Amino acid sequence: MTKKESHTIWIKREAQRLGFDACGVSKAVFLEEEAPRLEQWLQSGFQGEMHYMENHFDKRLDPALLVPGAKSVISLLYNYFPSDIQNQDSFHISKYAYGEDYHHVIKKKLHELVGSMQEVLGSFHARVFTDSAPVMERAWAQKSGLGWRGKHSLLISKQRGSFFFLAEIILDVELNYDLPFATDHCGSCTRCVDACPTKAILPNNTVDGSKCISYFTIELKDEIPAHFKDHFEDWVFGCDICQDVCPWNRFSTPHKEPKFDPDNRLLNFKKNEWEEITEEIFKDIFKKSAVKRTKFAGFERNISFLKK
């Protein structure tokens, strides 16, 4: 066994020990196939008011611009599927935001993994990412053999469904590379396309981000367009509809991360309690949650939009 092979095997075992559900490795190359897709997506205006998506075009495609001399991209999956979900007579919050903000939880584990790698592999340069930098996470995960991109654009794993976070380590060390995941197992299924109430999922495996409920309830700072009234199906932070209807998520299993466990009030509050929530209670329930991104005023706006 070569050093590259033994190091790669060790990294995958260490990632598993730290709680990651899957780990794949791909060669750090320019994402040539992604360039025209990204350009077309931006030219179509599908980013809406998310103007940050227009920045760092080259960095999104070339890992060497993020880590000079980059040779490998390690992609990882971290499950967030909950064992319990919200009361049905409630305003809905996306499952990924039930517990503590995943950016902090997962980045801590990534830094721990890199620290262990430094001890075994020797000194190297690396950066860690989880949905917080110009990194095309789904493209790298697919290139690393972890799954394929569904019609809803999310990565799907045959073994795990899609309720997981993606994370990456870009480093200047050559490793043993996995084969890309080449097969689309969605076939003729259009459940996510059909179920999307705002018609954000287009027939050509593209998502118009400017029509997505997650965009309206999290990213959009202005008033939500009135013509989307009655299309939100009670979602006030994010949306899981396309994942909830996906047949592959029958394989989802509850996570084992205590930090992702929700406050009981989040699970049990009914609509009238959310409507009467004070800023103090909001800050208490979501003190470590990604829901804080909307701030109390944004959360109130989203509830008011559904009540009108």
Rank of each mutant, 00 (worst) to 15 (best):
M1R: 12
K4D: 10
S6W: 09
W10C: 12
I11V: 15
I11N: 07
K12E: 04
K12D: 02
A15Y: 00
L18S: 03
L18M: 06
L18Y: 02
F20I: 05
A22S: 15
V25N: 11
K27L: 13
K27W: 06
A28S: 10
V29E: 15
L31M: 06
L31Q: 09
L38Y: 02
L38T: 02
E39L: 04
Q40L: 07
Q40P: 00
W41K: 04
Q43H: 05
Q43M: 04
S44C: 09
G45I: 07
G45F: 06
F46H: 06
E49F: 03
H51G: 09
Y52Q: 13
M53K: 12
N55C: 12
H56F: 13
H56T: 06
F57S: 00
R60N: 03
P63D: 12
P68R: 04
G69I: 09
S72N: 06
V73D: 02
V73Y: 02
I74R: 03
L77D: 01
S83F: 09
F91I: 05
H92T: 03
S94A: 15
Y96A: 07
Y96Q: 09
G99Y: 07
H103F: 14
V105S: 13
V105R: 08
I106V: 15
K109M: 10
K109W: 07
L113G: 01
V114W: 00
G115T: 11
M117E: 07
Q118S: 10
V120Y: 15
L121S: 08
L121K: 14
L121D: 08
G122P: 06
S123A: 13
F124N: 13
A126S: 15
F129S: 10
F129H: 06
V135K: 02
V135I: 14
A139I: 02
A141F: 02
K143Q: 03
L146K: 00
R149P: 00
R149A: 01
L154G: 09
S157F: 01
F164P: 04
L166D: 01
L166H: 01
I169N: 07
I169G: 08
D172Y: 02
L175D: 04
N176W: 02
D178E: 13
F181R: 01
A182P: 00
T183Q: 13
D184E: 07
D184R: 14
H185F: 15
C186W: 04
S188A: 15
R191E: 12
R191I: 04
D194L: 12
D194W: 03
A195N: 05
C196L: 03
K199C: 06
T206K: 03
K211N: 13
C212G: 13
C212W: 00
I213R: 04
S214H: 11
Y215M: 10
F216T: 05
D222K: 08
P225N: 15
H227Q: 14
H227P: 12
K229M: 03
D230W: 04
D230P: 01
W235N: 08
V236Q: 04
C239V: 13
I241H: 11
C242T: 13
C242Q: 12
V245G: 12
R250G: 05
S252K: 07
S252V: 09
K256Q: 14
K259Y: 06
D261V: 13
N264R: 09
R265P: 00
L266N: 01
N268L: 11
K271F: 01
N272T: 11
E276W: 00
K283V: 00
K283W: 06
D284G: 01
F286A: 01
A290G: 15
V291R: 11
T294A: 15
K295D: 09
G298H: 10
E300P: 00
S304F: 08
K308V: 07
